[in-house]
Design a protein around this nucleic acid. Structure first.
Lengths: 378, 378
DNA sequence: TGCCTTGATGAATCAGTTC
DNA sequence: CGAACTGATTCATCAAGGC
């Protein structure tokens, strides 16, 4: 890991072509982003200032003072100023993101509506908004509102037409008891030993995010080896989790104290082994098998009779890898769709063959071919 | 109840001074709002078009077509057009809201960021954003995103300096395990017998909201006798719940078919008695319970009669999750203690309901809810 | 009547590759 | 770049029908 000044980034030889990875760049967020090469990062996680607009001190019922976020970097004169700032750094993010990259932004009701609207105005395409439900949120001390028990994250691609973004659907599903991962996530806030403390024993950063949250974000929307950028690096949670999960990181941070804390923290992290990092994939990633391979390999013979699960439709296998049924013919998919009067049909699961008096989908034959391919290293 | 045309509202003698209550106004939302007297309603619930921007058809894995929202009223040419529409109706809402009134707006990621930003631009002051977590959301069929399992509501007052808005903190707390009500709420989507059907058996309105959701909104932020306005009345859930809870309603709706459905629906609603509607304002109760979930989930209905194991004491369930018995009222624990002259009482084991001629502790219902919550990952 | 199976459906910004 | 082709993909709940 290294820490580079903005000037160093700008004169780094590779700065126009390749990304500067596993590095914290010291400097202003927008200027630093503009110094990075375009289309060089796979994903961005951004935890911008929340624009909290606290009017005065807040006291608990026992009269102790709440240690609120009142740092310089969270002071904006107006929504207009906050919007201009937001637009500037989001635009700079667009430039450094690869075409199939995605961005995550976290916020609360104070700022997330401005962020979301500006994302849309800048032609980002929202894929999901995700709710982080806190198991242990701060209470509402005055009893004048509901307890503010969540924060919101927006996940977006570069546009409606942007294709090919990473979403590890099967991994998320497997991790969630084999049902789809929902848009509401439950995690504790960052506390205890995970919370970075300064030498004075006080928290090193006021809004340190839990590693579990970043883990799910990175596991869901990046691949091992990807570059994850965090333009508001703070205590370096993004870098720490990225390193552990075998991704590269680039952090941008203005304040030296935060950089020092993040650097020490990340140095202690060990990257997990390859076996632990392999991304669970579904059928999607499996090699493509054309239907006629089943015929070529002798698993199905020309003239064989196929039918749907209920026996309502049937067809004959032709030597060229198409099916025919009465007047109609076509690929396994086309013919299945035609016979059902549908636009589309997955022929692999629709068509069945008879084996020992039992109907089995031809997908079972494809399975055999794939197993054989895997075994022979094809 | 009555249905008035816009012209009738405009020539109604009292239209400049008092509100036109328990009425559906037929007409365009903004024009109708402008015809209502200023500062005449205590709360607004708005469920505006979401601006879904659907590109093409979506099919389930079984090739059936998803019946998406493709109504005229959800079509906007651009974000700019949607923003102008949003600004117009929100501005019109400002005028009719009493100084201490509050507004709720529900939306999804398609529109809620625009709504939130415009609310702030118009000087509304966000009090909370609330997440409606759906127990049974529609799946993501293509496996390219997280399952979109929530919608977002913004609750706002007329400005940072606006004082005196209604928030029934103690009632919310007593109903929620005697801990503060959080900003994430769990409810099923509206389905089954609650869902209004047309004569053809198809849903009367594509986006009917569940009554439990409106119940919590109205119980938390209005008082009995208040006027609740809904500028996008649709199937009339706001009116139905308002009437049941002893609040007045004003609905605005453009389409006659929706008005007809709402009118018939509301006519069937009975207002709960005074005892059930009294808002809990008492002091904290000591033990922890989660009683109103039984009401939200339909296991217990407001007005239901509970008694102790020996039948010596009995009480009536109120809509806000408290019990009343003669002069006395309170959470299930406080009331049980009071009636027995004790300091404390476990209401869960003390109170019983009748099931098939047998007395069973309400703890049995809590068990059902807990099993369900565990199953749904709540 | 009751249990089980089958089918329907809900605010949805829901594909990637080759020709 | 557009059209054509291939083929991957669902959870909870309720209603209806079979047995």
């Amino acid at each position: 890991m290294s820490v580079l000044s903005l000037a160093e980034i700008q004169r780094a030889p590779g700065s126009k072509s390749g990304p500067v990875i596993d590095t914290i760049v010291k400097g202003d967020c927008v200027a630093a982003l503009e110094a990075l090469p375009e289309k060089s990062v796979d994903a961005i996680f951004a935890d911008p200032p929340y624009n909290l607009q606290l009017a005065g001190d807040l006291h608990r019922p026992d009269q102790s003072k709440v240690d609120a976020v009142d740092n310089d970097w969270d002071q904006f004169a107006s929504f207009k100023a906050y919007d201009a700032f937001t637009r500037a750094w989001l635009l700079a993010c667009r430039r450094v993101l690869k075409p199939a990259g995605t961005i995550w932004v976290i916020g609360s009701y104070h700022n997330i509506y401005r962020v979301g609207a500006i994302l849309q105005d800048l032609n980002f395409w929202i894929l999901n908004d995700i709710v982080w439900r806190k198991t242990n949120p701060m209470p509402n001390f005055r009893g004048r509102r509901f307890q503010n028990a969540h924060e919101t994250m927006i996940w977006a691609s570069l546009g409606q037409k942007a294709k090919g973004y990473t979403f590890n659907y099967e991994a998320m599903k497997a991790a969630n008891d084999d049902v789809q991962m929902r848009s509401d996530w439950l995690f504790p806030i960052c506390a205890g030993s995970e919370r970075l403390k300064g030498e004075d024993g006080k928290k090193a950063h006021p809004t340190q995010k839990p590693e579990a949250l970043l883990s799910r974000i990175i596991l869901s929307s990046t691949k091992p080896g990807d570059v994850v950028l965090d333009p508001f690096f703070g205590s370096g949670t993004t870098g720490a989790v990225a390193k552990r999960l075998g991704r590269h990181y680039v952090g941008i941070e203005r304040e030296q104290a935060y950089i020092d804390a993040a650097e020490a923290r990340i140095a202690d992290i060990k990257t997990l082994g390859k076996a632990e990092l392999t991304v669970m994939t579904g059928k999607k990633a499996e090699p493509r098998v054309a239907f006629n391979v089943l015929i070529d390999s002798g698993l199905l013979k020309p003239g064989a009779r196929l039918q749907c699960a209920k026996g309502r439709h049937n067809a004959v296998v032709r030597a060229d890898g198409t099916l025919s049924s009465g007047e109609e013919s076509g690929s396994i998919h086309r013919l299945g769709a035609k016979l059902q009067g549908l636009d589309a049909c997955n022929g692999w699961t629709f068509w069945h063959f008879e084996d020992a008096g039992e109907l089995k989908p031809i997908d079972a034959l494809r399975r055999i071919v794939r197993d054989e391919m895997a075994r022979s290293g094809a």
